[in-house]
Amino acid sequence: MIHASLQAFSSHCARQPLGKGPFAIVIAEDATELASTLDHLTHLGFRRIFLLAPDDVDLPDHLADPDLIDVIRHPTRRPGTAQAAVNMLIRLAPGQWLHYCYNAEYLFFPFCEQRRVGEAIAFVTEERRNSVLGYVVDLYAEDLSHHPNAVSLESAHLDSSGYYAETRRTTDDDVLDRQLNFFGGLRWRFEEHVPEAKRRIDRPALFQAVEGLQLREDNTLSIEEMNTYSCPWHHSLSAAICSFRVAKALRTNPGSRHDIDNFRWHKSTRFYWSSRQLMELGLMEPGQWF
């Protein structure tokens, strides 16, 4: 179903509630790999996908299961509109689990090749947690002369090292318990082209829409416990969001595109679209889930 705006979608939900999740929200900034992003979420087992896209973004001709996808026309390129859209959907889906991403981004959680997202959520819920921290892992094409927008599923590469974390503090300089600011990937290697506020790679990968929750502009949640990387007593499951978004932006923006002719370096490695590879590189954690 296609909705003319977020307001139209909200009115529709008042008449016909969304039902049971988990739900995925895709924020389409353009049409790049939009079909593969939607197909990936469908295969992971999301019960419904909400696609937010401007009027000038063409919808894919073929989708894995078009009945699962609601299209919401929305100006996703304006600053702050992504957070506003996610926050509206939080209010429309109380108690349900959500994931949000952009086009050309792909959610991975431990053992996702054999297990559905509902199974991961069930495990996290048993551990009395209502969020899964994610790390945005930058992907980029091997050869920019063949893929000038840096996007290629077949030759995708990622950085195998260069990731680090810093203590997260409040505005009063108090240390936040079990919270860290994570950095790495292209935002670290090409930081001169990335605003400081956009350099972090941590983002909530899955979270429950609890009452009063808000997604903030810095991609943290307003309930601090939901931003923690683990529970107090042991390591918790985490996820990775494998993303071409930064590479594409660096190759598109006038201030950086002429300075970058290759993203590869001596720590680049081919991405095999495997949760095991991400775990072996330390880019996500199975916790106590075996």
Rank of each mutant, 00 (worst) to 15 (best):
Y229W: 14
T228D: 02
N227S: 11
R203C: 13
G212D: 01
D202V: 13
S230K: 09
A205Y: 06
L250R: 05
G255K: 13
S238C: 13
L206N: 12
T252D: 00
N227M: 12
W233R: 06
S230W: 06
M226V: 07
S243Y: 01
V246G: 00
P232F: 02
R199Q: 07
N227H: 14
S238Y: 09
R199C: 01
S230Q: 14
N253Q: 00
I241H: 10
C231K: 10
A209I: 08
L250W: 07
R203S: 13
R199D: 02
N227L: 13
E225N: 11
A240R: 11
R216C: 14
V246R: 09
L250G: 06
A249F: 00
Q214S: 05
D218H: 11
I201T: 14
H234R: 08
L213C: 06
H258I: 04
A249S: 02
R216P: 06
E217S: 12
V246C: 05
S256N: 10
K198V: 04
S222M: 01
H234S: 03
D202E: 15
R199K: 07
T228S: 09
L213Q: 02
A205W: 11
Q214M: 11
I201G: 04
A209W: 09
R257A: 03
G212V: 01
N219G: 09
A205E: 09
K198A: 06
R257Q: 10
D218M: 04
I241A: 05
A197S: 06
E224T: 15
L206F: 11
G255I: 08
Y229F: 15
A239D: 07
C231R: 13
M226E: 06
L206C: 13
P232Y: 05
E211L: 08
V210Y: 07
R200G: 08
N219W: 14
L213W: 03
R199A: 01
R245M: 00
R257K: 11
F207C: 12
S236D: 02
G255M: 05
I223V: 15
I241F: 09
E225Q: 14
W233N: 03
Q208K: 15
C242A: 15
F207Y: 14
R199L: 03
S236E: 05
R203K: 15
